[in-house]
């Protein structure tokens, strides 16, 4: 069974149909990159996977749990799906370590001591152990995003969703965030990444999906998509961004 199963996903905002029928399976340990022009529905698709946007039609199943089922405990399911945002969305009133500890302690997954210990391990892993008592506003964008990744990992998710994680960063900070993500991919994390970093997609992705107009227009290995795109729209998009 695939880690993430999406069947016939349709998402409408009022009359605007953003996703027009998406079918997608992501296997355990797979890294899938979503690329495409703005407004193509990449972010919406990603946000439907943890039901931050509730699908209008279709089914979303993660780890055998049907998220689109009303009876599913959505909070419990989300503990298993980490998400990293374009704007980091760290909690500005909490220090770095408290940002990381908040959810695990609130959800009673860990005691304060356990959460602090795990939080420090994760901070060390993203190279920010010395920033534990700083506030988000005192960190650079790249550092904030790395804290956000540590925060998501502290819940021990099986799946990680990244929504344009480097788009709000200064160019010289993109590398440090991508490095952390590459590490994660290497360790076998199942990842779905919306990105404009074609270099990252080419290097790390197992599969690249090109979205346009609410459909998955083309998909394949990075070699296929970047080296020999079949669809006209994929070709013209890649010509513009590469």
């Amino acid at each position: 069974m695939a880690k993430i199963e999406i069947n016939g996903l349709v998402k409408k905002f009022g009359k605007l149909e953003v996703l027009k029928g998406i079918d997608l399976n992501v296997e355990e340990g797979e890294v899938v990159c979503l690329i495409g022009p703005s407004g193509s529905g990449k972010s919406t698709l990603l946000r439907c996977i943890n039901c931050l946007e509730h699908p209008t039609e279709g089914k979303v199943t993660v780890d055998g749990q049907r998220l689109t089922d009303k009876k599913t405990d959505i909070n419990k399911a989300r503990e298993n799906i980490g998400m990293v945002f374009q704007q980091f969305n760290l909690f500005p009133h909490l220090s770095v370590i408290k940002n990381i500890m908040l959810a695990p302690v609130d959800r009673k997954k860990m005691t304060k001591e356990q959460a602090e210990k795990k939080g420090m391990e994760l901070l060390a892993r993203v190279g920010l152990a010395d920033k534990r008592d700083q506030f988000p506003a005192q960190l650079s964008g790249g550092q904030q995003q790395r804290v956000a990744i540590a925060r998501a990992l502290c819940m021990g998710p099986d799946v990680m969703l990244f929504d344009e994680p480097t788009s709000a960063l200064d160019p010289e900070m993109v590398g440090e965030v991508l490095d952390v993500m590459k590490e994660l991919a290497k360790e076998g994390m199942t990842m779905v990444v919306v990105t404009h970093e074609m270099g990252f997609a080419r290097e790390v992705a197992d599969r690249v999906l090109f979205l346009d107009g609410g459909y998955i227009v083309e998909q394949g290995t990075p070699e296929q998509i970047f080296g020999d795109p079949q669809n006209e729209r994929t070709k013209s998009f890649l010509e513009k961004v590469l």
Partner: peptide, 9 residues
């Protein structure tokens, strides 16, 4: 969104 995505009710 950040809090809800972490599973907080």
């Amino acid at each position: 969104e950040a809090a809800r995505s972490l599973g907080m009710p």
